[in-house]
């Protein structure tokens, strides 16, 4: 691991400096994670008096449970939809902003602030917009003969949370795409123009390939966001309903463990989620650090 050529020779000081970070990490991160792993192998009796070691029973039950498996599939659908939509929108906007010179800053300002909106607030904003009795969007949809009710229709509810989650994430993706676009040397576009490529052709043959490191990085970040940071959006709007239609994995851990008090199952779900995060972080550091180079 890298250090400086010149280092200070003190022994106790660095340990004192890093101690606060270590203590907090050990107490609030590592210890609870180990506890979750332990609980995932245990079951409490119905009165919460005794726990017994049950090996992988919590896991096998989980994977035999159709509601968990469908939550898995639902999460996949949700994450894919949010990632694709948020990245596509952001890319279009970033490409447009990088084309305008004078007003780029103004547009950027108008586009980035949703980053600072809490997920639960984003959820509530769209929930209100889509409110079946007074919301503006169901009224507009009604004019086209479409009835909207996310309280009863699972599809409508899923569309609602996807839109809210996408809306919040556009600003983040936009900034990274814009930074990526601005780091592509102008000379490349000019060379392509001299070679006779029009603006659209240039975008797809020059700009997009050169942007692939950013795209890949955002892909990981967006999947991560959709899977974990959207808890507030779900809890602020549908609470996983109607009839489980928006119950994604991260919400289910909370619902089963905190509301349903099924500790063993919730712990097993936690461990599975941890493995997913570890895989994502691994992919990010393994492949994004050594970005696709040209």
């Amino acid at each position: 691991m890298q250090t400086k050529r010149t280092i200070f020779s003190n022994r106790a000081l660095p340990i004192a400096l890093i101690a606060p970070q270590l203590v907090i990490t050990l107490i609030f991160f590592i210890w609870p994670a180990l506890q979750a792993i332990r609980s995932s192998f245990e079951r409490e009796d119905p009165f919460g008096l005794r726990t017994s070691f049950v090996w992988f029973q919590n896991y096998t039950r989980l994977f035999a449970d159709p509601t968990y498996l469908s939550a898995f599939g639902r999460t996949l659908l949700f994450a894919t939809a949010v990632t694709v939509l948020a990245m596509a929108f952001a890319l279009v906007l970033a490409a447009a902003v990088s084309r305008v010179m004078r007003s780029a800053n103004a547009y950027t300002t108008l586009l980035v602030w949703p980053y600072a909106v809490a997920p639960v607030v984003a959820g509530i904003l769209w929930w209100f917009m889509f409110n079946p009795s007074i919301g503006i969007l169901p009224y507009v949809l009604g004019q086209f003969g479409i009835t909207w009710n996310h309280r009863t229709s699972g599809t409508d509810a899923m569309v609602l949370v996807v839109i809210a989650a996408t809306w919040k994430q556009i600003s983040y993706n936009f900034l990274f795409f814009l930074a990526g676009l601005q780091s592509i040397p102008n000379a490349l576009s000019e060379a392509a123009a001299i070679d006779g490529a029009g603006p659209f052709k240039r975008f797809f043959t020059i700009v997009l390939p050169l942007l692939s490191p950013t795209t890949f990085f955002l892909l990981i970040i967006n999947v991560n966001y959709a899977m974990f940071d959207t808890f507030g959006i779900i809890d602020g709007t549908t609470s996983g309903g109607p009839n489980q239609a928006t119950n994604i994995l991260v919400y289910k851990v909370y619902a089963d463990g905190f509301l349903g008090l099924n500790i063993g199952s919730s712990a097993a779900q936690s461990v599975i989620l941890m493995l997913i995060v570890i895989a994502l972080v691994f992919v990010q550091f393994r492949f994004v650090e050594r970005r696709v180079q040209y």
Binding site: I30, A36, S39, V253, Y254, S270, M274, V277
Partner: peptide
């Protein structure tokens, strides 16, 4: 150890962390 915190968002260790606090 510091790096590991990246892999353990609060959402996935809700109950034990709550218990510690």
């Amino acid at each position: 150890i510091v790096f590991v915190t990246l892999m353990l968002p609060v959402e996935v260790r809700i109950i034990p962390t709550f218990a510690v606090v």
